[in-house]
Amino acid sequence: MLADDFFRLAHHDVNGRRRLHARAVDIGLAAALIAELLVTRHLEIRDGELVAANRTPPTDAVAHTVLDSVLAELERHSVRTWLLYLEKDARTHVARRLVRSGDLQAVTSRRLLGPVITRYVPTDMNKAAWPWLSLSWRLRERHKLDFPGACLAGFILATGLDKWVLEGAPPAASEYLQYVAAHLWPPMRELLAHTEATIGDAVLAQRT
């Protein structure tokens, strides 16, 4: 699933630490959860707002939860509002899904006098590193990407993770990534435009 693969890309394959600053990971994962429901046609974007198009419960529990929260709202909200709302729990949702599938293991630790910290550590580093290996190789070789691969490519560009995925790659790889992103399925592209703008606004609103 898209959010699972983005989670794997955005976290270290051995120790589970973030590769990207926290808000970009959270907003990216929120977007990935919306993306999964766009692909299954449960949700649609109309005039910049998120709309439920199909009330049939999705098979996945997390997708079910997200769709339920959209259905529970009486008024429509913009994609950006949904990103900011889902951002709060998206990482936990996706991490728990990966724990249930046996891909992650929750490790809790307590610092002296500090709060209990839960880290999610991959159980199999090969599986955890696979999305990165596959995407990085395909982009560098300008290999054809399937639909999920192209979406994932769009996600790394919108969140800034491309700098890491394409580290040391020739400029042609970046150009190919731009090309893939520019030719994404339109609803996905709109979602990613909002995602990029929301992450950018988070940078601008930093308080010091």
Binding site: V39, R41, L145, D146, F147, P148, A150, G154, L157, A158, Q178, V180, A181, A182, H183, L184, W185, P186, R189, E190, L192, A193, E196, A197, G200
Partner: peptide, 21 residues
Amino acid sequence: GVHSGATFGATRPPLVDPTHA
């Protein structure tokens, strides 16, 4: 105030869409 620039903004035909997934 929004990056409505080249990457995700313009309308271009999709290379692949979910029906071909």
